[in-house]
Design a binder for these strands. Structure first.
Lengths: 180, 180
DNA sequence: CAACGTTGTGTACGCTTGTACTCATGCCCT
DNA sequence: AGGGCATGAGTACAAGCGTACACAACGTTG
């Protein structure tokens, strides 16, 4: 009720709120009403800025996805050129599975939602590709990069599901095998 | 309306119908009404046999899961003792990603749902463990088996998302690296 | 400065959902 | 053989959903 007119960041705030809701309560919890409440805007505002709930979902996941990938990009760039990729990736896995649980959960939710939801597929596929491309800068070939990404995804999922903690040395050894 | 009394398979038929619904339209589509319609029973019947929708969900996913794992168990047993595990697994991956799309999609949906849903977690965790145990019969150690499972999961997911086909030789080579 | 039109708000509608509850049915045991 | 009761059927209800739409508010333009 405060600033009515002239709130150009409104749309962006709605997207941010949608990401929060999805992170904390899952993609399924996304509704015009939950998002509107989280963004502290009236219900009509979300339906005004987005033609349908789908559009809001896509916009939110797209942004969350890119933020996540940007973070990984940064991580890769910060690595020294001669870094031990397997060791660094193992550390990243441990950190992710232990700390960023909600973030990575959302990531997997996006993947699986994309399996049924046409409009999310390019988003998820792009994510897979970009991640592989990122790793490929430090692998002998692209196939190896994709395998690293696949193994990483699978391992994190296992850790999240079983609640076990990763043994970095062990993970490093496994990743190392893929790198010859 | 046909057989009213004395329909002891009723509960089982409801579970089967629930699996069908989940396979075809996703876990989200599971509701008392969709399941009742698919099983051709009145709405009251599903609420009678299951205390809540959660119970129906758990029962259905548990059964679907075990059927899937039983199939894998059978696959492993049918392999000759000196089989090339990497090659056989690569063939399985190709077959799964190409044909059993709905089945494996449901499997991933279960995994991800378990990340948020307490009651599904033991189910998913058990699935991971049983699969690893199964593979461990043919790997030098359990770690390697878990890694094979993780890489397999990740690769199938990549294939489903990108719509690309697997190159069995390539996959075989990757799995082979994990096996030394 | 007033009229207009873009932008934002509030509400209402039709639908689906999970679940509770009443009534009919027919097997089992005494 | 008949009463008791576990089982099945049908309906009703409150809550939540997406969306449409009429109205309010304001920056902009003539």
């Amino acid at each position: 009720m405060a600033a009515r007119r002239h709130d150009p960041d409104r749309r962006q705030r709605i997207i941010d709120a949608a990401i929060d809701v999805a992170r904390e309560r899952g993609i399924d919890a996304l509704s015009h009403r939950t998002v509107a409440a989280a963004a502290d805007v009236p219900l009509g505002s979300t339906t005004y800025h987005f033609a349908g709930l789908d559009d809001l979902l896509v916009a939110a996941l797209d942004q969350a996805n890119n933020a996540w990938l940007d973070g990984l990009e940064q991580w890769e760039r910060a690595l020294p050129p001669d870094a031990d990729l397997a060791a660094e990736l193992a550390a990243l896995i441990e950190r992710t599975a232990a700390g960023d649980r909600q973030q990575v959960t959302l990531e997997y939710e996006l993947y699986v939602a994309a399996l049924r939801h046409e409009r999310l597929r390019p988003l998820a596929a792009g994510c897979v590709d970009r991640l592989a491309g990122l790793l490929a800068r430090r692998t002998p070939d692209r196939i190896t990069a994709k395998a690293l990404a696949a193994l990483t995804d699978g391992l994190i999922l296992q850790l999240l599901l079983t609640g076990r903690r990763a043994d970095p040395a062990e993970v490093r050894e496994l990743l190392g095998r893929l790198l010859r």
